[in-house]
């Protein structure tokens, strides 16, 4: 049998679905989708998704593992919860999208330049440092995420915005040096580390 044929035959087997059930947040819901398409029609950035949620659910069932895990579609989710509130089957679509995004990232299949993937990591790292988000540093890290040169450009482009914010006392340059923090920082960090360990331990190997 040719490779193509084997690939075809592998389709419509439920092994990837089982993987999603085991390793993706709320993944056990995927099989309950009835393919009505309401989620796709409700998604605010829908037109920018290569594969809107309904299609992703179908692709999972059709065993299209690589295509699902390498698409950047789920990173387009703004967490607006429109889909959840409308899905007639009550699927927690938002969380499944988040879960798929994270799973793809965990497996190293997310493209390096995916801006939301990058931003979310920067956000998380920022949050991990002090237990609270330091918006100024967050902003700067975003501007400089593509290297120093691009960073200056980005920062210049948004200079006016920053100035406006400072004027309104909603951005504080002093934060760069101090900023807010939780007091029990070590306890906080230990807690998160433990949670990460538990989560990593729960991942089942499917390859």
């Amino acid at each position: 049998m040719s490779d193509l044929n084997t690939a075809m035959i592998e389709k419509y087997r439920s092994s990837f679905l089982k993987e999603v059930e085991a390793n993706v947040e709320e993944g056990e819901w995927v099989k309950m989708c009835m393919q009505c398409g309401v989620c796709s029609g409700s998604c605010p950035l829908g037109k920018h998704w290569d594969h809107p949620p309904q299609e992703i659910f179908m692709m999972i069932r059709a065993n299209k593992r690589d295509e699902v895990l390498s698409t950047d579609s789920m990173w387009m989710c703004t967490s607006c919860y429109n889909c959840i509130s409308r899905c007639p089957r009550g699927l927690p679509i938002t969380h499944i999208m988040h879960g798929l995004a994270v799973y793809s990232k965990r497996l190293g299949l997310t493209q390096k330049q995916q801006p939301t993937a990058q931003f979310s990591q920067i956000f998380w790292d920022n949050l991990m440092k002090k237990g609270r988000v330091n918006e100024l540093k967050l902003g700067l890290s975003i501007y400089f995420k593509d290297g120093f040169g691009q960073g200056v450009k980005n920062a210049m482009a948004n200079q006016k915005l920053g100035q406006n914010m400072m004027k309104a006392k909603r951005m504080n340059a002093m934060e760069f040096f101090s900023g807010h923090s939780v007091k029990d920082l070590s306890g906080f960090q230990k807690m998160v580390k433990k949670a990460q360990e538990i989560e990593a331990g729960n991942i089942k190997d499917f390859k």
């Binding site: 947040e25 990173w75 967490s79 988040h98 879960g99 995004a101 994270v102 990232k105 965990r106 939301t116 993937a117 931003f119 979310s120 990591q121 920067i122 956000f123 998380w124 790292d125 949050l127 998160v192 949670a195 990460q196 538990i198 989560e199």
Partner: peptide
Amino acid sequence: IGYGGGGELP
């Protein structure tokens, strides 16, 4: 947005 860096349990 924290989900992208933190995953579920964290």
